[in-house]
Lab assay of single mutants.
Amino acid sequence: APRKVEMRRDPVLGFGFVAGSEKPVVVRSVTPGGPSEGKLIPGDQIVMINDEPVSAAPRERVIDLVRSCKESILLTVIQP
C-alpha cells in the first residue's frame, strides 16, 4: 500500500535522502538524524512528488521537483 510521507527541509541536511538514478526512482539511503529518518526506508519506490506522478519521469524532472520544494515535500512511496 502506498504511504504518504511529508518532510520539512533541514537547512543543513536538506530532506536527508538520496535517490537512485534509475526508473522507477528508488530511495538509496537515508541520512541519520535527517528529516527522512523514520519516514523513508532504503528501497522505497517514489511514485509521486507532491501531486505529480514520477514513476516514468526523467531524473532531471525528479531533481527539479525536489529542489523546488523550499520548505516541505510530500512523497508518495511504496515498498515494491
Rank of each mutant, 00 (worst) to 15 (best):
L74I: 15
I49E: 01
P58Y: 05
V62I: 13
D51P: 01
G20A: 11
K23A: 08
E71Y: 05
M7D: 00
N50D: 12
L40D: 00
P11W: 04
A57S: 13
P11S: 07
V30W: 02
P58W: 03
D44F: 00
S29M: 09
V77I: 08
P53M: 13
R67F: 08
G43T: 03
I78K: 15
P58K: 12
L75W: 02
P32V: 11
G33C: 09
D51I: 03
G34F: 02
P35K: 03
D10W: 03
G14W: 00
Q79H: 12
G20R: 08
R9M: 07
V5N: 02
V47L: 15
G43P: 00
G16Q: 01
G38I: 02
C69H: 10
R9C: 06
I41T: 15
V54P: 00
D10N: 10
M48A: 15
M7F: 09
S36G: 11
M7K: 00
E22M: 05
E52L: 12
K23C: 12
V5D: 00
S21I: 05
L65D: 03
T76R: 10
P11H: 05
L65G: 04
C69V: 09
R67I: 06
P2Y: 14
E6T: 14
E52S: 08
E37A: 12
R3N: 04
P32W: 05
E71N: 08
V62Q: 02
A1N: 15
R28N: 14
R67V: 09
D64F: 04
V12I: 10
P11V: 05
G34Q: 01
P80W: 04
S68V: 06
P32T: 12
E52W: 10
A1L: 08
G34T: 10
V18S: 08
G43C: 05
P53D: 15
A19H: 12
R28K: 14
K39W: 07
P35Y: 02
L75A: 04
P32M: 11
P2M: 15
V77C: 10
E52P: 01
R59G: 14
P2T: 14
P35W: 00
G43R: 05
A1T: 04
V77N: 02
V27P: 02
D44G: 02
T31S: 14
G20Y: 10
L13V: 14
E22I: 04
A57Q: 12
P80L: 04
V77G: 02
K39Y: 10
G43E: 06
D10F: 03
V18I: 13
E71A: 08
E37R: 05
I49N: 01
V18D: 10
G14T: 02
K39T: 06
P32A: 12
G38M: 06
Q79Y: 09
N50C: 06
L74C: 15
E60D: 11
V77T: 05
G43Y: 05
L75S: 03
S68M: 09
D51K: 11
M7G: 01
S29E: 14
R67Q: 14
I49W: 02
F15T: 01
I46G: 03
E6H: 15
I78S: 15
E6V: 09
I73K: 03
G34K: 00
S21W: 09
L40A: 01
G38W: 05
V25S: 14
V54C: 12
L65E: 05
D10E: 05
V66D: 02
G20F: 07
P53G: 09
N50Q: 08
D10T: 04
P32E: 12
A19R: 01
I46N: 02
C69K: 09
V25T: 14
Q79K: 12
V62R: 00
L74S: 15
V5E: 06
V26N: 07
V27W: 00
V26K: 11
T76S: 11
L75T: 04
G33N: 09
E37C: 11
V12K: 14
Q45K: 10
V27I: 10
S68C: 09
F17H: 01
R28W: 08
V12R: 13
G43N: 07
L40K: 01
R28S: 13
G33I: 04
V66F: 10
M48Q: 14
V54R: 00
P24T: 03
R61F: 11
M7A: 05
I73H: 01
P2S: 12
E60Y: 06
G16K: 01
E6M: 10
I46L: 11
R9V: 05
I49A: 03
P80A: 09
E52A: 10
K4S: 09
A1M: 05
D64Y: 05
L40W: 00
G14F: 01
Q79T: 15
R61V: 11
R3A: 03
I73A: 06
G16T: 00
G38A: 08
F15K: 01
I63C: 08
I49S: 00
P80S: 10
S21C: 11
P80C: 06
G16S: 01
L75K: 04
C69L: 05
E60K: 13
I73F: 05
D64S: 13
E22H: 06
L65M: 14
R59S: 10
L40G: 00
V62F: 06
K70I: 04
P11F: 04
S21T: 07
T31D: 10
I49Q: 00
E22L: 04
K23R: 12
S29A: 09
V66E: 03
R8A: 14
V5K: 02
G38T: 07
A19Q: 09
V12S: 14
P42E: 13
D51H: 15
Q79G: 15
P2N: 14
V47P: 01
